[in-house]
Simulated assay, not measured.
Amino acid sequence: MKLYEFAPTRSIRVRWVLQELGVEFEPVTVNLAAGGHRSPEFLEINPAGKVPALVDGDLVLTESVAIVLYLAEKYPNKGLLPADLQQRAQVYRWLLFAATELEQPLWRIARHTFLYPEDQRLPAEVALAGNDFKAMAEVLEKHMQQRQFVVGDGLTVADIVMAYTLDWAKEARLLDGFPQLVAYMERMYTRPHAAPRIAQAFASLKA
């Protein structure tokens, strides 16, 4: 099994799941800063030119949420995806909530802060996206009251995806006023098999 990754990206989600599962894998760094994602070799793996990508035998899989679901289903005895249908549906719900309601505003902020060429950035979009994120973060804040995990009484892939997304929000300085979310995120990253925080991943690139 090979994981094509770049330290600070959503690759962190997949690496974390693999580490929680205790699965051996070969990490392959795709250096986005050096244009490695545009190389012909990598574009054969993911024509979209994005990481992460997982190669497991004949299977080539992209999109971090799809990958973590695949891994959870491949190793059902590890419990990262509930056997109960209703609990599993809740995991799907919160995975999609993270990807659509929380992550999309974060992407808008990133695009209009440093990804787009400077003459294409719209400062107003940053403020609007921040407001959109906070409105949905309030929903999650209420959900997490009296909870240790997003779904049920144990770790699922929803927690790993959510913890990374909240760490991204922390980097964007959007978690002030959400004590439940901050405490939850910090707790997730103290797990023995947790992946590095985004800030740590960036720092490792400069080492």
Score class of each variant (00 low, 15 high):
residue 10 R to Y: 06
residue 110 A to E: 14
residue 109 I to R: 11
residue 9 T to C: 11
residue 143 H to V: 13
residue 110 A to W: 09
residue 47 P to V: 00
residue 6 F to S: 02
residue 130 G to V: 02
residue 141 E to D: 10
residue 61 L to Q: 08
residue 51 V to I: 14
residue 11 S to T: 07
residue 164 Y to H: 13
residue 149 F to H: 12
residue 148 Q to F: 02
residue 83 A to K: 14
residue 58 D to F: 02
residue 35 G to S: 09
residue 207 A to M: 09
residue 71 L to S: 04
residue 56 D to T: 08
residue 87 Q to T: 12
residue 41 E to N: 09
residue 86 Q to R: 15
residue 161 V to A: 12
residue 9 T to V: 07
residue 144 M to A: 07
residue 72 A to D: 05
residue 60 V to N: 10
residue 31 N to Q: 08
residue 194 A to M: 06
residue 156 T to L: 01
residue 49 G to M: 05
residue 20 E to A: 05
residue 11 S to E: 03
residue 136 M to Y: 14
residue 35 G to Y: 08
residue 102 L to F: 04
residue 188 M to T: 01
residue 73 E to A: 14
residue 161 V to R: 09
residue 180 Q to P: 03
residue 28 V to N: 10
residue 92 Y to E: 11
residue 135 A to K: 15
residue 43 L to K: 14
residue 55 V to E: 11
residue 44 E to C: 07
residue 148 Q to A: 12
residue 89 A to N: 08
residue 152 G to T: 06
residue 8 P to S: 06
residue 72 A to P: 00
residue 12 I to G: 07
residue 164 Y to M: 11
residue 108 R to H: 14
residue 57 G to T: 09
residue 161 V to C: 13
residue 16 W to F: 08
residue 19 Q to E: 15
residue 99 A to L: 10
residue 179 P to Y: 01
residue 145 Q to M: 13
residue 43 L to P: 10
residue 49 G to Q: 03
residue 139 V to A: 09
residue 114 F to K: 11
residue 196 P to V: 00
residue 101 E to Q: 13
residue 188 M to D: 00
residue 136 M to H: 15
residue 77 N to K: 15
residue 132 D to W: 14
residue 117 P to V: 11
residue 151 V to A: 04
residue 134 K to R: 15
residue 11 S to Q: 05
residue 62 T to Y: 11
residue 161 V to W: 03
residue 153 D to M: 01
residue 152 G to F: 01
residue 120 Q to P: 00
residue 153 D to F: 00
residue 8 P to K: 02
residue 82 P to T: 10
residue 162 M to P: 00
residue 45 I to M: 06
residue 190 T to Q: 15
residue 90 Q to I: 08
residue 10 R to W: 06
residue 35 G to M: 06
residue 115 L to I: 15
residue 87 Q to W: 02
residue 162 M to D: 00
